Simulated assay, not measured.
Amino acid sequence: MLLARKTAIVHGGSGAVGAAVARAFAREGAAGHLTGRTVPPLEDVARRIQDEGGVAHVAQLDATDRDAVDRHADAVAAAGNGIDICFNATSNDDMQGSPLLDMALADVLRPVTKAVTTTLTTATAAARHMVRRGSGVLLVMAGGRETIADLGGSHITWSALTGVCRQLAAELSPQGVRVSWLLSPGSPAPGEENRADKAALLAERPAYDDVANAAVFAASSWARTMTATELNLTGGLVPD
């Protein structure tokens, strides 16, 4: 197993991406700590992980509350002899479907502010423990290289998160903490698994499990030389 004996925190662990990543981490041997604002859906994900033979713990947490996130990271580190992986999959409260010309400034900036806040809060809380051991991996859903209309503040948000990740990588990588982000055009809803964007080269958009498998790789020792790195899961929609 790629993540055996690792301790992983998944913020936003009850969302579609967070749940898929949490299950994949557990499948590969990591003890998972799932956080979110609402406990019952987190417990559903944890129960599924446990039914599959994995380890999962649940905590109610507001990822914008720095003190609360710090306390949670301290507790996880104390219980598991450190933190190996931190994945931020919290929602950004974005509003899509309208051109920027028609949007109120507050609606454009809301997801930017929330995403940068939660990413910095969760990453720094975990990184303080990782630096002490000289190892760890921070993962974020980011990107921002697409040219797609009517995304509201989403595209600006992803671009901002890429900048945050690059700076974190520059500061933390010399201390043994790797930072990577996953670029995905969005995953299909149930029943849409075979539909692809017309501009993509592959016939299918990535499923949530595809994103989760990429996260497992990025968190594992197989990616030990990768930091300040984007994992492009767009199927060619965004070329490298």
Rank of each mutant, 00 (worst) to 15 (best):
V112M: 07
R128V: 10
R48D: 15
A79Q: 12
T121Y: 00
E52R: 07
R128T: 11
Q50R: 14
L105M: 12
T121D: 01
I85R: 05
N92S: 13
A78Q: 12
I85T: 06
A75R: 13
S98M: 08
S98F: 06
R132T: 13
T124M: 09
V108F: 02
V112W: 00
A115S: 06
D51Q: 10
V55H: 15
D62V: 02
T113M: 10
R128K: 11
T64R: 08
A79V: 08
T90S: 07
R47W: 06
T90D: 07
P111V: 05
V108M: 02
A123I: 02
S98A: 11
A89M: 06
S98H: 10
A77M: 08
T90G: 03
M130G: 03
G54A: 14
A78S: 08
V76Q: 14
R71K: 13
V69H: 15
R128M: 08
T121A: 01
V131W: 02
I83R: 08
A126P: 13
T117F: 00
R128P: 14
F87R: 02
R66L: 04
V55L: 15
H57C: 10
A59H: 12
D65T: 02
N88P: 15
A46T: 13
G134C: 05
V45Q: 02
H72D: 12
G82L: 03
R48H: 08
D67K: 11
A77W: 06
G53F: 05
V108A: 02
D94V: 11
D62H: 06
V131R: 08
M130S: 01
T124R: 05
V55W: 12
S98T: 14
D62F: 04
M95C: 08
Q96N: 13
L105A: 09
P111R: 03
R132Y: 07
F87S: 05
V69Y: 10
T90Y: 00
D51W: 07
L61R: 05
L138F: 12
R133A: 12
I85M: 07
D51Y: 04
C86R: 08
G80A: 10
A46S: 07
P99G: 03
R133T: 10
A63H: 01
C86Q: 15
K114D: 03
M130D: 03
M95Y: 09
N92H: 14
D84G: 07
A123C: 10
F87Q: 08
T122C: 11
P99F: 00
V45F: 02
G80D: 10
A79R: 07
M95Q: 13
A73G: 12
L61F: 05
L120W: 01
D65S: 03
G136P: 09
L109Y: 00
V76A: 06
A104W: 07
S91I: 01
V58M: 04
Q60R: 14
L120H: 00
A126Q: 03
R48V: 05
L139M: 12
V116C: 00
T119R: 04
